[in-house]
Simulated scan of single mutants.
Amino acid sequence: MADRQEQPPCRILVMASGNGSNFQALIDAVAAGRIPNSRIVRLVVNRAKAYATTRADSAGIPWEYFNLIGGGFLAKGERDEAKVREARERYDAALAQRVLAGSGDIRERPELVVLAGWMHVFGRAFLEPLEREGIRVINLHPALPREYNGAGAIERAFEDFKAGKTTRTGIMVHYVILEMDMGAPILVREIEFREGEELAQLEERIHGHEHELIVEATAKVVREILEARPAK
């Protein structure tokens, strides 16, 4: 078998919605070789003012803005549940096609999609086309498996700590499936609460752990992808 370092790099697409500090951690880790033999081929954001795009520009990584409302899938202020559901399905399907198209070059099609602070819950229309093509999708979530799924996880855990219901929370990187934050964990880290710590301090501490865990988990999955490639 050829030396794995002689293989083409594993192609990673990152999706982010905001500041992009976890995206920056991935950029730095790829550059330092902590994520082996890999390349970030593109960034997708769904918020026009996401600072992650500035990070992408600095690193020379192409990016695109693709938004549910801005893309014309959903009228601003629409409340009809059926229309919202249909719009989300069309958006997911369109985004899946963009991912599979690889920016017009099939050689740029990602092998791994990393959701790094991506504020949109995907449905079948996105996940199934990628699964058929063998593209893995992983997500960072600031809670332990089967605890505090969905938005506001840190705040809800902190409230339970203040109420004496728990002494720890955590973070995980997991595979993305239809059930929100319920996919198989890749890496998990427990984080103990500290007496006297305020929510803002806890959030800062958790974010520091997130930067480490998302790199470690991405590296683990990249190694698996590289090892699973057929021998030449």
Rank of each mutant, 00 (worst) to 15 (best):
A25P: 02
L68I: 11
A29V: 06
N67I: 07
I12R: 11
F23S: 01
A25E: 08
S21P: 00
G33A: 09
R42S: 07
I61M: 10
L26V: 06
R42E: 15
R39V: 06
A48L: 13
N67H: 07
A48M: 13
T53S: 11
A29R: 05
P8T: 12
T54H: 08
N19Q: 12
R11C: 06
K49C: 00
R47M: 02
L26G: 08
V45K: 02
G33D: 12
S17L: 06
Q7P: 00
A48K: 15
T54K: 11
R11V: 02
V30D: 02
Q7C: 07
A56T: 01
I35A: 07
G60E: 08
P9Y: 14
K49S: 05
Y51N: 05
I40E: 13
P9W: 04
I61R: 12
S58T: 12
L26Y: 07
S17M: 05
K49A: 07
S38Y: 15
Y51R: 05
I12M: 13
D28M: 02
A48D: 14
R47G: 06
V45F: 03
E6F: 03
S38P: 15
V41P: 04
N19P: 03
V30A: 03
L68F: 08
D57A: 10
G18K: 05
A59G: 13
I40F: 07
I61D: 10
V30R: 06
V41Q: 12
A50Y: 04
R55N: 08
R47T: 15
Q24Y: 01
G20V: 05
I27D: 03
R47H: 14
A25V: 03
N67F: 00
I27Y: 04
T54M: 08
A29P: 00
A50I: 05
P62N: 14
Y65L: 00
G18R: 09
T53V: 15
A31H: 09
Y51T: 06
E64P: 02
P8N: 10
G33F: 09
V45G: 11
F66I: 12
A31G: 09
E64K: 04
I27L: 10
G33I: 05
I35T: 07
D57H: 10
S21M: 08
V41I: 11
A56Q: 07
L13I: 00
M15L: 14
M15F: 10
I12N: 13
V41W: 01
E64Y: 05
I40W: 15
N37L: 12
E6W: 02
L43A: 07
R42W: 10
G20I: 06
A50K: 03
I35C: 06
C10A: 15
L43E: 11
N67W: 06
L13Q: 12
F66R: 02
F23M: 01
S38M: 14
G20H: 09
R11W: 04
D57P: 04
V44L: 12
R42K: 15
A16V: 14
R39Y: 00
V30S: 04
V44I: 15
T54P: 03
E6L: 07
Q24H: 06
R11S: 09
N46R: 01
F23H: 10
L43H: 09
N19Y: 08
G33S: 09
Q7D: 12
